[in-house]
Design a protein around this nucleic acid. Structure first.
Lengths: 226, 226
DNA sequence: CAAAAAAGATAGCTATACTATCATTGTTCA
DNA sequence: TGAACAATGATAGTATAGCTATCTTTTTTG
C-alpha cells in the first residue's frame, strides 16, 4: 500500500501554503531540525534561510513570523496525533482499551512515518515536549484562538474526553482530565530527562513508566477497572 | 505581630542582590508588573528602566538578562509557596487534610501579603501561570539546573510528595504525581480563562472547580478516602 | 571627611525582526 | 511560441533588542 497522508492546515497559519511547493516543504523540514537542535529562542528566519540556501525574505513569503511557524508545526502534530488515535482505536470496543491506546500514543516516541517524507516525527515530538506550550503561552492567545489556530489540540482533547466519558458517563471532568494527561505526558517526559527529581523515573528513564503512571492515574480517577 | 518574611535567594540568580537596595526592589516590583501586563516576550530591560526611571545599564548591574530575572521571580514564588504550605499544614496530622490544603494553596489566587511590600503576589501568581514554564523550557536547562536555580520548585515538589507518601506509603509515583498536580493547577487555570474547551469549567470559571478536579484525581489515584 | 559603593548618563556594537524593491527563472495556457 | 504570471533570488534598509564599556555624580559608611 502506497498511501500518502496529507493534513489540511488552517489557512490562517501561513501566508503561502508550504505543502504546495518545494521550498515550502524545505522550510518545514529544516525548521523542525533547527528548532529541535537549537531551541525556539535561538531559532531565526535568517539562520533557517542560510541553512536551506534561500533568503530571509523567502521565508517570510510562507510564514508571517517564527511564532506562526511554531503554531503551524504544533498544529500539524496534534492533527497527526489525532489521526493516529482515531486510526488505532478504530474497531476497539472497550473504552478502557481505547484510553490505554491513547496513553501509549501520547507517551511514546513517534516512529518514522514513511507516509510523510518531509516531516521527521521523532524530532517533532521532541519539539512538542520542549517548546509546545510556547505556542499558546502568549499575550495574543485570544486572537490566535479566534482564528482557530489551536483547533487540532482542542479536537484531540475532545476525542480523548469522549473515551473518558464512554468509560464512565458519570465522571464530571472529562475535558480537564484529557488536557491534564496530554500535558502530563509531555511534562513528565521533559522532567524525566532534565529535572529527574520531579519524577519517579530517574533510575529507569523509560517512556513506559510514564505511561504506567498516567494509566494508573486515569483509571483510578474515573473509577474504571484496568 | 509585625513580621517581615524574607526569602534568601540563590546567589547565582543575580549579579547584585536586588533585595538589598532600593533600586533592586524597584526592579523586582516593576518587572512583575511589566511581565504580567505585557508578557515575557515583549518585556525588555529598556522598557523596565524607563518605567522605573533608571537606565538599561542600571538593570544589568542586578540581573545578567531578562531570563535570569524570570527564573529569579519564579524561584521566589516557589520558595514563598513552600513557606506557606509548611506554615499552613503545620499541626495538621491527617495527611489527606494536608494534601487538601496544598491543593487549595496551589489553585487559589494568592492574597496580598502585607509581609512582603515590594512583591505583588497576585500578579506574580498570574506570571507563574502564563510564563512559569518558560523559566525551565530552554536549551540551557542543564547548566541552570547544575547551578541549583530550580531548587525551590524541586523542594516544593518533595514536600508534596512526602504528603502523598504519608497518605499511602505503597503509592509508587509520589514525585510525578506532585509535579503533575503543580503543573495541572496552572494549566487548568490558564486553559479555563483562555482555551476553556480544554476544561470543564467554561460556565463557572472558578478556581474552586480546579481544586475539586485535582482533589478527586489525587485521592482516587493514591487510593485514600476523602 | 575620605574611600568605596551605587547609580546616572551616554555611547556604541551586533543581532533580530521585519519590509521593500527589483531582477531572474520557471510554468502555463491561449 | 510567447505573453502573462507565479515563484524565487538578490540586495538594501529600518527599528528595536540585547548587551558592554566608560566616565561622572551621588550616596553611604567606617
Amino acid at each position: 500500500m502506497d498511501v500518502e497522508i496529507h493534513i489540511k492546515m488552517n489557512e490562517k497559519l501561513f501566508v503561502r501554503n508550504p505543502e504546495q511547493t518545494d521550498l515550502g516543504k524545505k522550510i518545514i523540514k529544516n525548521s523542525i531540525e533547527l528548532i529541535q537542535g537549537g531551541g525556539f529562542e535561538a531559532f531565526t528566519f535568517k539562520k533557517l534561510a542560510e541553512h536551506i540556501g534561500t533568503t530571509e525574505a523567502g521565508i517570510y513569503r510562507y510564514f508571517e513570523n517564527k511564532h506562526r511557524l511554531l503554531i503551524y508545526i504544533t498544529a500539524w502534530y496534534w492533527s497527526y496525533l489525532q489521526y493516529r488515535v482515531v486510526f488505532e482505536t478504530n474497531n476497539i470496543d472497550d473504552p478502557a482499551a481505547k484510553l490505554k491506546k491513547v496513553i501509549q500514543l501520547l507517551t511514546s516516541t513517534v516512529l518514522e512515518d514513511e507516509r510523510v517524507k518531509h516531516i521527521d516525527e521523532k524530532l517533532l515530538h521532541e519539539i512538542i515536549i520542549a517548546e509546545g506550550s510556547k505556542a499558546y503561552l502568549t499575550k495574543h492567545i485570544s486572537e490566535d484562538n479566534r482564528d482557530k489556530l489551536f483547533k487540532p489540540y482542542k479536537d484531540l482533547c475532545s476525542v480523548i474526553a469522549e473515551f473518558i466519558t464512554a468509560s464512565n458517563p458519570a465522571y464530571k471532568f472529562p475535558h480537564s482530565l484529557a488536557s491534564t494527561i496530554i500535558e502530563a505526558a509531555h511534562n513528565q517526559n521533559f522532567f524525566m530527562h532534565h529535572l529527574p527529581s520531579l519524577t519517579d523515573f530517574a533510575t529507569e528513564k523509560s517512556e513506559k513508566n510514564i505511561a504506567l503512571f498516567i494509566e494508573e492515574m486515569v483509571f483510578n480517577t474515573i473509577g474504571s477497572g484496568h
